[in-house]
Design a protein around this nucleic acid. Structure first.
Length: 379
DNA sequence: CGCTTTTGACCCGCGC
DNA sequence: GCGCGGGTCAAAAGCG
């Protein structure tokens, strides 16, 4: 810090000046073992490098001894002001970043809606098979040898969907329409479990290490099978090991668990805390709408709320891009909706006592540390 | 005891 | 026909 400038601007003090305190002029001095002593050294340093009259320093002419607490308080005040402006600037920057992220997200979503609309048209025109092919995966599991038995199947579909749609299921066939969707789940890097919390109960029936991905792929059936034909495959993303890619086949014919504590996790020691599910096509959007400890942002609902749940599920769409869904998405990308999102984020942060406490601790720690004064009670 | 996970074996389609 | 690789089965083990 430039103490000389600070003295002159903040306290209107110049080195060498006398101070009148309580009617009497005190002889102010600096002590090497006090913070002000640092100031003295700083001023001496300035003196050595400049010829300014204001920087004439001698131990006898500078007197701040009696006013040390006052100076320290002023210094703290200046630090506070400085920190406040810094936090304000940071806050402004974060707000701008949030706006940019929202804009990019809406742009991507619009593109996806367009793409899905075109894709669906193609499927309706070309494909009697009603496989819903929705995959914009950045984590596709690579190539596979098998071709679709149905020659009319769309060539642009992913390997996974090819396989699922074309394959003659050996077990209980998924009757009629087979809906395929993918969900991307952000997990902790150290979390090695293949558990995706989606509100349904699953039974694992197999695990394989595939050729193109060193991470094993887990196979799940809905626990209500055979009455419920839904299957799920979970594998870590090749690009990002912290992302789980869950591929759903079929549609649940029953409601999700009312308290989705991830029954697959309940029967497994590993936990799936702090996961974020980003589904580009949910089998059942209501599957993620209940629970505890999760923040659910269902963008198919215009005024969705943040719901506690162990995972954060961002449901960006529903089964097939119907006209009403598209209309809803357009509404969701409106400035009002963005504002609502920001408000929700801000309120969820400020209402969080741990966040408030952490913020207070950070600030108090920042300002208490230099002085070690007994002002803790103020926080 | 019932349910789930684990895991090796088996099935099946595809490419060569 | 054979080998490869993904998907599934089913016995064994674990767990509450």
């Amino acid at each position: 810090m430039d103490y000389s400038a600070w003295l002159s601007t903040s306290l209107d003090l110049k080195v060498g000046s006398n101070l009148t305190i309580n009617g009497s002029t005190s002889t102010l001095r600096l002590f090497d073992d006090s913070p002000v002593g640092i100031l003295k050294k700083e001023l001496q340093s300035i003196t050595a490098t400049t010829s300014s009259d204001h920087a004439q320093v001698s131990s006898s002419s500078i007197t701040i001894k009696d006013e040390f607490p006052k100076v320290a308080a002023a210094e703290a005040s200046a630090l506070l002001a400085e920190e406040l402006s810094r936090v304000s600037a940071e806050n402004k920057k974060l707000t701008e970043m949030l706006v940019v992220v929202c804009e990019k997200y809406n742009s991507l979503r619009t593109q996806m809606v367009d793409f899905m609309g075109k894709k669906n048209d193609q499927n309706n025109n070309n494909n009697e098979n009603n496989c819903v092919e929705i995959n914009h995966s950045t984590a596709s599991s690579g190539s596979k040898k098998r071709k679709s038995a149905d020659s009319t199947t769309n060539n642009s579909s992913s390997d996974e969907e090819h396989d699922s749609c074309a394959k003659k299921s050996k077990g209980e066939p998924i009757s009629g329409v087979t809906k395929i969707s993918k969900a991307y789940v952000k997990t902790e890097a150290a979390d090695t479990s293949l558990i995706v919390k989606d509100g349904y109960q699953w039974r694992k029936y197999g695990q394989k290490v595939t050729r193109d991905n060193p991470s094993p792929r887990a196979y799940f059936k809905c626990s209500f099978a055979p009455s419920c034909p839904v299957k799920k495959k979970v594998q870590r993303s090749l690009e990002d090991q912290s992302i789980l890619v869950a591929t759903y086949e079929g549609e649940h014919n029953h409601p999700p668990l009312s308290q989705p504590q991830d029954m697959s996790a309940a029967s497994t020691p590993a936990t799936g805390a702090n996961r974020r599910v980003v589904s580009n096509n949910t089998l059942n959007s209501s599957s993620s709408s209940s629970g505890q400890g999760t923040i659910i942002l269902d963008l198919t609902k215009p005024r969705s709320v943040l719901v506690p749940h162990p995972t954060t599920i961002v449901d960006t769409s529903s089964k097939v891009p119907t006209t009403s869904n598209q209309q809803q998405r357009i509404n969701n990308s409106s400035p009002e909706f963005q504002k609502f999102l920001v408000e929700q984020m801000a309120s969820s942060l400020t209402k969080d006592p741990t966040f408030t406490a952490a913020l207070a601790a950070a600030i108090s720690g920042r300002f208490m540390q230099p002085q070690q004064h007994n002002s803790k009670d103020k926080w």
